[in-house]
Amino acid sequence: MSSPAASFAAALQAARAAVGAQEYPRASLYLVPTPLGNLGDVTLRALHVLQLADRIACEDTRHTQALLRAYGIDAPADRLLPVHQHNEAEAAQQVVARLQAGERVAYASDAGTPAVSDPGARLVAAVQAAGLRVIPLPGPSSVTTVLSAAGSIREGGFVFHGFLPAKAGERESAVQALAREDRAVVLLEAPHRIAAMAQSLAMLGARPVTVGRELTKQFEQVATMPCADLPAWLAADAQRTRGEFALVLHAIEPVADEGAGERVLRVLLPEVPLKTAVKLAADITGGPKNALYDLALRLKQAD
């Protein structure tokens, strides 16, 4: 059986042939998405930049070195710069100094797209503040992957929330706030906290949630159920609490009867500001705020 590095030899050649002619400016920070788990999800452009970069900044140098070796990319220790949540502010200045010296620096998270929920945002801000260029590469993302499987994007888009608070009281307050959000909401969670998260989400009752576990990996699971059923679904199989999680709270479907919202808004709009009228109408009718806001605007314009 061939090694992973041997398997990707053709991909490295294809990367150079396909994207090598593009300009790759020096003194630039390249944000390089890495696979969520399946090595085959890396892009040709990512492979080329990882070969080309003078330095590769990363969350965990051991993890990134193993990834680079799997692709057959030379990764001596002096090419790797640790940039993680505990040293990001200080390490960002080291990266800025290297960029100012004319180096190309790639930043790769452990998995997925950097600077979304993983470290990297402070690094990007520091590079931009220094007047240097940031070049983002598209690629793997747990956010877009789980959204595509949920089928719950409606007019108005979605909200990326990320990780809920670790403390129970703060987490439940956050979930109560999400209950009033009528757009789809993307959440992330670690295996050691997924059971507690499920208990908090259960208060949302019948609202559907899509769970993506171990996305792109061998034991990937994608399942949709009412939030109230999530704790029992996890408890039914010990394997279901293992791995990394990305979840989508589904968008709240608009109420079929717009008449109730209109009747309430016609009473409220002459008496209170538009935003207050929309909030009260949503509380009274249970209708989605976005749809009621659009309706309120139309009623105002008609008057």
Score class of each variant (00 low, 15 high):
residue 2 S to W: 03
residue 3 S to H: 09
residue 4 P to S: 07
residue 4 P to F: 03
residue 8 F to K: 00
residue 11 A to L: 08
residue 11 A to R: 08
residue 16 R to N: 00
residue 20 G to P: 02
residue 21 A to Y: 01
residue 22 Q to V: 01
residue 24 Y to S: 04
residue 30 Y to Q: 04
residue 37 G to V: 06
residue 39 L to D: 07
residue 43 T to W: 11
residue 46 A to V: 11
residue 51 Q to G: 12
residue 52 L to F: 01
residue 55 R to N: 00
residue 57 A to F: 02
residue 59 E to S: 03
residue 65 Q to R: 15
residue 66 A to H: 09
residue 66 A to I: 01
residue 67 L to C: 06
residue 70 A to Y: 02
residue 71 Y to T: 01
residue 73 I to E: 07
residue 74 D to V: 12
residue 75 A to I: 05
residue 76 P to F: 08
residue 76 P to H: 07
residue 76 P to A: 10
residue 77 A to K: 09
residue 79 R to Y: 09
residue 80 L to D: 07
residue 81 L to E: 13
residue 81 L to H: 09
residue 86 H to Q: 14
residue 89 A to F: 09
residue 89 A to C: 03
residue 91 A to E: 14
residue 95 V to E: 08
residue 96 V to Q: 08
residue 98 R to F: 12
residue 101 A to D: 14
residue 101 A to G: 09
residue 105 V to R: 07
residue 107 Y to E: 08
residue 110 D to Q: 02
residue 115 A to V: 06
residue 115 A to R: 05
residue 115 A to I: 01
residue 116 V to L: 15
residue 116 V to E: 02
residue 118 D to I: 05
residue 119 P to D: 11
residue 126 A to L: 08
residue 126 A to C: 05
residue 130 A to G: 03
residue 132 L to Q: 03
residue 134 V to P: 11
residue 137 L to R: 09
residue 137 L to Y: 08
residue 139 G to Q: 06
residue 140 P to G: 01
residue 142 S to C: 11
residue 143 V to S: 05
residue 144 T to I: 10
residue 146 V to Q: 05
residue 147 L to M: 06
residue 149 A to F: 04
residue 151 G to S: 03
residue 155 E to G: 04
residue 155 E to P: 02
residue 159 V to M: 14
residue 159 V to K: 02
residue 161 H to C: 02
residue 162 G to R: 06
residue 163 F to Y: 13
residue 163 F to D: 07
residue 166 A to S: 14
residue 168 A to G: 00
residue 170 E to P: 01
residue 171 R to N: 12
residue 171 R to E: 08
residue 172 E to P: 00
residue 172 E to W: 00
residue 174 A to N: 11
residue 176 Q to N: 08
residue 176 Q to R: 15
residue 176 Q to D: 14
residue 179 A to D: 12
residue 180 R to G: 03
residue 186 V to N: 01
residue 186 V to I: 07
residue 193 R to G: 05
residue 195 A to F: 10
residue 196 A to P: 02
residue 196 A to T: 05
residue 200 S to I: 01
residue 201 L to P: 04
residue 207 R to Q: 04
residue 213 R to M: 10
residue 221 Q to R: 13
residue 223 A to G: 00
residue 225 M to A: 15
residue 228 A to P: 02
residue 229 D to K: 03
residue 234 L to C: 10
residue 235 A to H: 07
residue 236 A to H: 06
residue 237 D to P: 04
residue 239 Q to N: 13
residue 239 Q to V: 05
residue 240 R to N: 11
residue 240 R to M: 13
residue 242 R to C: 10
residue 242 R to A: 13
residue 244 E to G: 09
residue 246 A to E: 08
residue 249 L to N: 02
residue 249 L to D: 13
residue 251 A to T: 07
residue 251 A to L: 05
residue 252 I to R: 15
residue 255 V to D: 14
residue 256 A to K: 14
residue 257 D to I: 02
residue 258 E to L: 12
residue 261 G to E: 13
residue 262 E to N: 03
residue 262 E to F: 01
residue 263 R to N: 14
residue 264 V to W: 11
residue 265 L to G: 03
residue 265 L to Q: 12
residue 267 V to L: 13
residue 271 E to M: 14
residue 275 K to Y: 04
residue 276 T to H: 05
residue 281 A to Y: 03
residue 281 A to N: 05
residue 282 A to P: 08
residue 282 A to M: 09
residue 284 I to F: 10
residue 289 K to N: 04
residue 289 K to E: 13
residue 291 A to E: 15
residue 292 L to A: 10
residue 292 L to P: 02
residue 293 Y to C: 08
residue 293 Y to H: 14
residue 294 D to Y: 00
residue 297 L to R: 09
residue 298 R to S: 13
residue 303 D to V: 09
residue 303 D to W: 08
